[in-house]
Design a protein around this nucleic acid. Structure first.
Length: 313
DNA sequence: AACCCCGCCAACCGCCCTGTA
DNA sequence: ATACAGGGCGGTTGGCGGGGT
């Protein structure tokens, strides 16, 4: 970590303790409560010198009267050098809302998709900000009208460019695979019964992120084993798949960012996560399945798109 | 200035999972 | 097979600080 960043953290902590943080009770037992600047310095110094290991050993060797668990938490959530900190960007909000809609309160899984953010940070942000915003939005719009600038088109060419301007479901066709699209207030719910027919939502103002919530139906979700949504944000597409492992009954996220080089051409995946099997048809062209790193000029793609500035690949 | 309310967030708690003896 | 320890995760709490009265 840069020294200035460490100093900032310690200074902030000093302020807190100057205002009357929890005191040491002088017993020979483990400390609890807020960390003192001295403790932070000890842990940072030890971790930068020795690296990660058994947390109980770290606590002991670093000279801390803390349990290993407490040290781990402090390091992971606050002292780690690669933490981003600061307010969440609209893109990060978007991802959190979207991923939460897919897998629920699996904060650690969601955190893996937001470099520099911790599960605790995301959880706090959700509980204090996003959840209320979503609730308010639904309440405020229960008798209102739909946003009219949301245009949905499915990767299935037969379904392209269906304008969602009514409250009913104007686009479902019994011949098609998707079985669940409904509107509640201003909330659009999208379910996919087949992951090869992931919906593309385009033309969405970032301020309307909280109006885009896809809520998987639990039963079909279990039957399918996965659910995929492909969102279009200012030309950059994010595809997230919630994968359910039927044996462990755990979900995980597989995701990729896509940057279409131009309209009417193939969608090119920009990440190297080749676990993702999403394969669809857009404008008659196939996406590339299982891309290889060497196939793409990743640096060029990332450099040329300002939206990548918040992603630390 | 004093008090109150409320939002934010760091940290704890308890449970679960995994690895090991 | 069982017990135990360590680590990870989600839910919850309590203190701080800012804004309002």
């Amino acid at each position: 970590m840069r020294n200035s960043a460490i100093t900032k953290i310690i200074d902030k902590n000093k302020l807190k303790h100057a205002c009357g943080g929890t005191g040491n009770n002088n017993k020979r037992k483990l400390r609890k409560g807020l960390w003192s600047p001295d403790e932070d310095e000890k842990l940072i110094s030890y971790m930068l010198t020795n690296g990660q290991g058994c947390w109980n050993v770290i606590a002991r060797n670093a000279g801390l009267l803390r349990c290993g668990k407490s040290c781990r938490l402090r390091w992971i959530n606050y002292l780690r050098p690669d933490l981003k900190r600061g307010p969440f960007s609209p893109e990060e909000e978007y991802l959190i809302v979207h991923l939460h809609s897919m897998i629920g309160n699996r904060w650690s899984q969601i955190a893996t998709q937001l470099p520099g953010r911790t599960d605790n940070e995301i959880k706090n942000f959700w509980n204090t900000t996003l959840k209320k915003r979503l609730e308010n939005n639904i309440n405020n719009t229960s008798s209102g009208s739909l946003p009219t600038n949301i245009i949905c088109n499915f990767l299935d060419p037969k379904d392209q460019h269906v304008n969602m301007e009514g409250k009913s479901n104007p686009m479902m066709d019994s011949n098609h695979h998707h079985d669940d699209m409904m509107v509640v207030g201003n909330t659009m719910r999208i379910g996919c019964s087949s992951f090869s027919f992931a919906p593309v939502v385009s033309g969405v103002d970032l301020n309307q992120l909280d109006q885009l919530i896809s809520v998987p139906d639990h039963n079909s979700y279990q039957q399918m084993g996965n659910m995929g949504n492909l969102f279009n944000v200012n030309g950059l597409r994010y595809c997230g798949n919630a994968i359910l492992d039927p044996t462990s009954k755990r979900t995980s996220i597989q995701s990729e960012w896509f940057l279409p080089p131009s309209e009417d051409t193939n969608v090119i995946p920009c990440t190297t996560n080749n676990n993702l099997n999403m394969l669809g048809v857009e404008n008659g062209s196939l996406e590339i399945e299982h891309p290889k790193i060497g196939d793409l000029d990743l640096d060029g793609l990332i450099d040329n798109n300002p939206l990548f500035t918040f992603l630390d690949f």
